[in-house]
Amino acid sequence: MKTNLSPVVAGFLLFFVFVSCIKDTDFDQVDNVDLTPTIDLDLIYFNLSASDFYDPATSTSVLTVSDTTELRFLNDIEVQRNLKRAEFYFKFTNSIEREFQADFQFLTPQNDTTYTAQTVVAQGTVSNPIITEFIENVEGADIVDLTQASKVIVSVTIPSSNANLEGALNLQSKVTYYVEL
């Protein structure tokens, strides 16, 4: 069979070439894509007993106890770049008949202080523990300071103590991280 088919084949191919196109799109919109997840994560917790504020061996008060933990993710380069706001939430439950001063001191790896936060914890009783909530919102220039830190010192100060003091001070905490990628 001798037939010139090239017009048919060419026509079919041209159909695809001419009619296929990508239109009504604007890929520059990708610049406007903002991933803005909000992440809730536990932070630290502790249980201090009234006896932690008195040293029976020397019969003296221990007015301040402190502890340190690294938070190495905080000064991670990605966190520094993308964290826009952090909201700390601390929940103290106090059954000791004393007010407390709680201090949070954020430090760089070189031990330079970059950010601090403090609050007063209301006194309670063994039969009636009192809850004190404390929210610290960090954003703007403060977030830059906060994300230079890689560790935090937590100090708890009691105005006075004795061997008969009873009860416990409990802390639970979380942070809500507002991220923009």
Binding site: L41, D42, L43, I44, Y45, F46, L48, D52, V65, S66, D67, T68, T69, E70, L71, R72, V154, V156, S173, K174
Partner: peptide
């Protein structure tokens, strides 16, 4: 289950470092 970091406030003496909670 992850609960965060528990601080136990160990009695420290002479600039002794605390526990490596994070590690």
């Amino acid at each position: 289950t992850l609960d965060g970091i528990e601080l136990i406030f160990p009695p420290l003496a002479n600039e002794e470092g605390t526990l490596p909670y994070y590690s």
